[in-house]
Amino acid sequence: MPERLANSLKDHRGQLGLTQAELAERVGVTRKTINTVENGVFTPSALLAIKLAEALSVPVEKLFWIER
């Protein structure tokens, strides 16, 4: 079975009461990128993953994990 990078971006974003647009602004990307990452359509780079983790104050390994 192929491996994929799963994430809990939506949950953590929701806990902080942030919209996709607000999170996008915090990490310097567009809402489109946040949406595609949340939906698993786009696998972010390590740089963006760390920026997202920082913006949500969550360790990166809690935000992203490998699903087998």
Partner: peptide, 11 residues
């Protein structure tokens, strides 16, 4: 322009 060329767009 940087936002218009963010990661998803580059991909």
């Amino acid at each position: 322009r940087a936002l218009l060329n963010d990661e998803t767009t580059r991909e």
